Simulated scan of single mutants.
Amino acid sequence: MTTTAASPVRPGAKRQSHVAADAITLLRRNLLHMVRYPGLSLFTILGPVVALLFIVYVFGGTLGAGLPGVDAGGGREAYVSYVLPGILMVTVASSAGGVAITAAMDITEGITARFRTMAISRSAVLAGHVLGNTIVGLIAVVLVFGVGLLIGFRPTADLLGWLSALGLIALTCYAISWLGVAMGIQAKSVDTASNWPLLLTLLPFLGSGFVPTASMPAWLQWFAQYQPFTPLIEALRGLLLGTDPGWNLGASLGWCVVIIAIGYVWSRSIYERRSVR
């Protein structure tokens, strides 16, 4: 009777499984942390919902009537369809503030230094924050989207459009989460951790999220057209409304890759430097 020797497990595979297991463990930790501090998650949801209701019911009639091909009578209904993709991207951008605060808490309270004494992958510590915030961001997007449906948003996407829109939102949440983690680790204190992420929240307002970029002054149009959130908003708008997103989809994917790379390199370098203090 012959026996077959077990095939050796490659060291690289061991390391990968170790990182994945650590990331899942820390993901659970961060989700529990968010349950214990629900205020961070509620702000991510309630802020965009209030902005959506305020803008639609206060300014929607006038702004909607100014959209191409819309008469004055259908202004508010048309504006809901126009503005909701922008509000969804505001929701994603707002999630960076929450993860920045939790990352800053770990750094300033010594949790990160404690992790270094344990057999935990350093990449997994960062990935736990990122994955946890991505899940919270997606939940917030679903809830804000539900409010949009209640006030009159009527998407016309087919199955491929829905799947593409969901994938684009998830990828954007993941990318923004990496940037938020880096900003949080960079912050000097927990109190200042949410300052830099506020700039991300402002970008959709300086793009095509609320008005067409063609209506802006010439000196602002260039920035509005080529900053990251404008192609993201236009691609999402096209996917949800069943129109061709054109080059915006490719530009959106490119921006997400760039943001992930910047966030990962930035957060990893600062984490290595600050966690040894």
Rank of each mutant, 00 (worst) to 15 (best):
G47V: 14
R28N: 06
L32S: 09
N30I: 00
L52E: 04
L32N: 09
L53N: 09
G66C: 03
D22M: 07
A23Y: 08
G74A: 05
A23T: 11
V35D: 00
L26Q: 08
H18V: 08
S17M: 11
L63T: 00
H18G: 09
G69I: 06
S41G: 13
A21W: 04
L26V: 05
I55N: 12
M34L: 13
R76V: 00
V19M: 15
G69F: 10
L42A: 14
V19A: 15
G60I: 04
S41D: 02
V49C: 13
V19P: 08
H33K: 12
T44R: 03
G75V: 02
S17F: 06
R15F: 04
R15S: 06
G64P: 01
L26T: 05
G64L: 04
Y57L: 11
G69K: 15
L27H: 03
A20M: 13
L27Q: 02
G60M: 05
L63S: 01
Y79D: 06
D71S: 14
T25H: 12
R15Y: 04
P48W: 10
L46W: 04
R28H: 10
I24F: 12
G66F: 01
H33G: 11
P48H: 13
I24C: 09
N30T: 01
L26C: 07
I55R: 14
S17C: 05
S41L: 12
G39R: 07
A23S: 14
G64Q: 04
H18M: 12
I24R: 15
L27I: 00
G74H: 13
G60E: 02
P68E: 08
P68Q: 14
L63H: 00
L46M: 13
G66V: 02
V70T: 07
F54D: 01
G75M: 03
V58E: 00
R15I: 02
I45Y: 08
L67K: 03
G74C: 04
V35F: 00
A21C: 05
H33R: 14
V56N: 10
V70H: 07
L46R: 05
V58D: 00
V70Y: 05
T44M: 10
A23F: 07
L52G: 08
T44P: 03
S17T: 11
V49E: 03
G61E: 06
P48K: 15
S17I: 07
N30E: 04
L40G: 06
L52Q: 09
A23V: 07
I45E: 04
L40H: 08
T25S: 12
G75N: 03
F54E: 00
G47Y: 15
G66D: 02
G61L: 03
Y37V: 10
K14R: 15
G61T: 10
V49M: 15
A21Q: 10
G64A: 03
T25G: 10
A21D: 06
R36M: 08
A72D: 04
Q16F: 12
R29V: 03
V19C: 12
P68W: 13
V50D: 00
L46S: 09
G61S: 11
A78R: 15
A65K: 09
G39M: 06
D22T: 05
V35G: 00
P38L: 10
G69W: 05
A51M: 15
P48M: 12
T44N: 14
F43T: 14
N30A: 01
P48A: 12
V50R: 14
Y57R: 13
R15E: 01
V58C: 03
P68A: 15
G61A: 12
L52N: 10
V58S: 07
R28A: 12
L27M: 07
G66T: 03
L31T: 09
